[in-house]
């Protein structure tokens, strides 16, 4: 028995000495991340090769707010995607390193887990691929993935998470996967509208908001032709007649098809009251302007969506619609990570 104790002690000492990463405790394991879904929310598609885990999401969140990912360590993803603005920005065009002015309005990241493609023209097929774009864009973080990963590689906690989640040191692979994982947790569906629609709380919306909802759903306004489903978008590409001549080609940038000129991915309306200014270029400062634009039916661009037709709203009805749009704001923090 005495020998048995000696053997165990020696074995333990030697095995600890032979482990790959001595910083990890012996019992260190990663656990699946328990994604909280609101009632009515479908399960988002989580790639098998990048499952949500406690460590991957924690690392992704830390990196999301880490300015060292930008070339001069001045801005992070969170600099243009503010949590208190449903992860959107407050300015029309965000500022990148050295104050460089961005190309388009920073969209909300709420519910990006449901998006089938990314960017306004839809050229990026996954969140993992998307992470590269802002980091390498000269107008945004102006770095490259490998250097960005190197810039944070001396962080012991990051390395510990990286080993736990991915079994490898923090590199470009881990960077893209972990930030994508964190973004997938930004589920939005805890608004009063959701409580009314999915939880049967009939009195949670005011009478004015209910009237606004009825207007929103009405054939006359036709909002739901595109803003439908749980995320209040069908992710289609539409030209809303914002301009007669678009400086930004929109989807045509990707397809070179003139029929796609001025078409952009339909955005979610969730948290719309928090995400001003609006449109791909942030040209509309508030929801009043947005409603007026749609009520006027948009400009007569040849690609203008057939779903857009002018409609009349009296001031009272406009107030109802605005009230409804305000009811789409989440009552809970989108960030599920402690």
């Amino acid at each position: 028995m005495k020998y048995g104790a000696h053997i165990l002690l020696m074995g333990a000492i030697i095995l600890i000495g032979c482990r790959k990463d001595p910083s990890l405790p012996m019992d260190a394991v990663d656990l699946p991340f328990a994604l909280r879904l609101p009632p009515g929310a479908p399960m988002p598609m989580i790639p098998e090769e990048n499952p949500l885990t406690v460590a991957s999401v924690a690392l992704g969140k830390a990196l999301f707010f880490d300015p060292r990912l930008s070339r001069d360590a001045s801005i992070s993803c969170g600099s243009c995607h503010h949590p208190d603005r449903a992860f959107s920005d407050t300015v029309a065009l965000s500022l990148g390193v050295e104050g460089r002015i961005g190309f388009r309005n920073a969209p909300t990241l709420a519910n990006v887990a449901y998006h089938p493609y990314f960017f306004r023209e839809g050229g990026i097929p996954s969140l993992e691929f998307q992470v590269n774009a802002p980091i390498s864009d000269p107008l945004e973080m102006d770095h490259n993935l490998r250097d960005a990963a190197t810039a944070v590689a001396n962080d012991a906690e990051y390395q510990r998470w990286s080993q736990l989640a991915y079994g490898r040191p923090l590199d470009a692979f881990v960077l893209t996967r972990s930030i994508a994982s964190y973004q997938r947790t930004l589920i939005s569906g805890w608004s009063r509208y959701d409580r009314y629609l999915y939880q049967g709380e009939d009195d949670v919306l005011t009478e004015q908001e209910v009237r606004g909802l009825e207007l929103f759903n009405s054939p006359a306004l036709n909002c739901t032709a595109c803003h439908s489903g749980f995320d209040l978008t069908d992710y289609s590409f539409q030209n809303i007649g914002q301009y007669l001549d678009y400086a930004d080609p929109g989807r045509a940038r990707l397809t070179s098809d003139p029929a796609d000129m001025g078409k952009y991915k339909v955005p979610t309306l969730r948290n719309i009251a928090l995400t001003a200014p609006y449109m791909h270029d942030g040209a509309m400062a508030n929801l009043d302007e947005v409603i007026d634009h749609f009520a006027n039916g948009g400009l007569a661009h040849p690609n203008k969506s057939p779903f857009l037709t002018s409609f009349a709203l009296d001031p009272s009805q406009k107030g109802d619609l605005l009230a409804f749009l305000n009811s789409l704001t989440d009552e809970r923090n989108l960030d599920q990570v402690p």
């Binding site: 960017f119 023209e121 774009a133 940038r253 990707l254």
Partner: peptide, 11 residues
């Protein structure tokens, strides 16, 4: 990627 030839918006 360090060659700077990648269109990040178009994958």
């Amino acid at each position: 990627l360090a060659n700077g030839t990648y269109w990040n918006w178009a994958n």
